[in-house]
Design a protein around this nucleic acid. Structure first.
Lengths: 229, 229
DNA sequence: CTATGATTCAAACAAACGTATGAATCACGT
DNA sequence: ACGTGATTCATACGTTTGTTTGAATCATAG
């Protein structure tokens, strides 16, 4: 079986699709753009992946499998070392979001391009994408939710889930890097090279996330800490 | 001039486009879907708005003009009452994000549909949309950034801009309401009616945002509070 | 060297896209 | 009642979309 050229074509397509989906979105990217940038024949996508939808899924699977395995690896190591005791919230947040952001410097596993694609895709309207992501993430989310529940036994579980949502949103928008509202002005000029964006981003996002996660609960009158874990 | 039917058609188109852009995105929504759902002729969009891009801009302008005027109105009132003294961070955050979230119950100005559309659009790849949003938001962002700078004189301006980004992301994802990772499980069943999602969301998001905004600065060694406002 | 299965290729498919056209219909001042 | 400008309508235009086809080319095993 001649898998030399084959897998080469497959990866060229995946790389081009990853970059174009990030830049123009799923619906905004055509098969001809993808095959054109990858330098392969138009029919190659349908031959190797079956359809545009399957290609999109493979673009994510290629990166997410590694990312979520790594997240679980870090979490498992932490829990093993804790020996039954609950982890600190900062540990859990770092295992989930820190592992994600450290992908930015890991060109081997997609680097910044995949991070931006992932950030934009979390608000993607297409139903099949969200369904696919939910399936890919199901087990990881369950594990990290459980870890957070144990880590914050005085906080109602529903409240933790809400804040996990907020943390996801802040991170997703940060790595999408669109700056839709042109928030930056001249203060960013001091950035010599954009390469270290992730280096600067990681500690800043982390303290923001932890500040939000550990913020006092809203409305002290009702919905108090009665429903502890 | 017969503007009865005319403005009726215009608004029907805007309503349908708003809902469909929210559900399927800009590229994923066709003119025929829009005119079909609006119950108007296919050519009506190009007659009243000129093009699909102009329609998209009008969908946002219709709501954003009101929202940003309201934000400035609240901020102006607060600053007038403060009589020169800096505002509290919670006031500024509420004027910006609270005003936004309170739109959810205001069907007159788009309600939840527009909120979800706005949340998803902030990570939209299309360049012309982000450029348009940046222009629509330019003055409001400047005013609120200035207010935050004065409110937190000990925090470096760059740090405040970062955290404004994070707050935008958390809010944008929360109002998009996609739940791409299916974070909710059975705990949401207790929600009798989905109507009060915004009622529950507002205080929760607010305390998360304030917790993040006021979190201790990252890395105490370098990048300390030297550059105060 | 030849046979075989995997891969690439140019070309075409029907369908859907955003937009434009000109006639028909409407509302309304005179 | 008539004329005028605004609006609606059915229809078509030229592209572009994702996908398919069948022949050409490749690598490799016998």
């Amino acid at each position: 079986m001649a898998e030399n050229r084959s897998s080469d074509t497959r990866e060229r397509i995946l790389d081009a699709a990853e970059r174009l989906f990030m830049a123009h979105g799923y619906e905004g990217t055509s098969m001809r753009q993808i095959t054109g940038e990858a330098g392969v024949n138009l029919a190659a996508v349908n031959y190797h992946f079956g359809s545009k939808e399957s290609l999109m899924q493979e673009v994510f699977r290629r990166r997410l499998d590694w990312l979520n395995d790594e997240r679980l690896r870090v979490l498992d190591a932490m829990e093993k070392e804790a020996a039954g005791k609950p982890l600190k919230p900062s540990q859990i947040v770092d295992a989930f979001f820190g592992t994600l952001l450290r992908m930015a410097d890991d060109e081997e596993h997609g680097g910044k391009i995949f991070l931006r694609l992932l950030g934009r895709t979390l608000t993607e309207p297409s139903e099949f994408i969200r369904t696919f992501l939910a399936h890919e993430y199901a087990y990881v989310m369950e594990r990290f939710k459980e870890a957070l529940f144990r880590s914050l036994p005085d906080v109602p579980k529903a409240e933790i889930v809400w804040r996990f949502h907020f943390m996801l949103g802040a991170t997703s928008y940060a790595i999408a890097g669109t700056d839709a509202l042109r928030l930056v002005t001249d203060w960013q000029i001091e950035d010599s090279e954009p390469e270290d964006r992730a280096d600067r981003l990681l500690p800043r996002l982390m303290s923001f996330l932890l500040g939000g996660l550990r913020a006092p609960l809203p409305g002290g009158d009702h919905q108090s800490k009665t429903e502890a874990a």
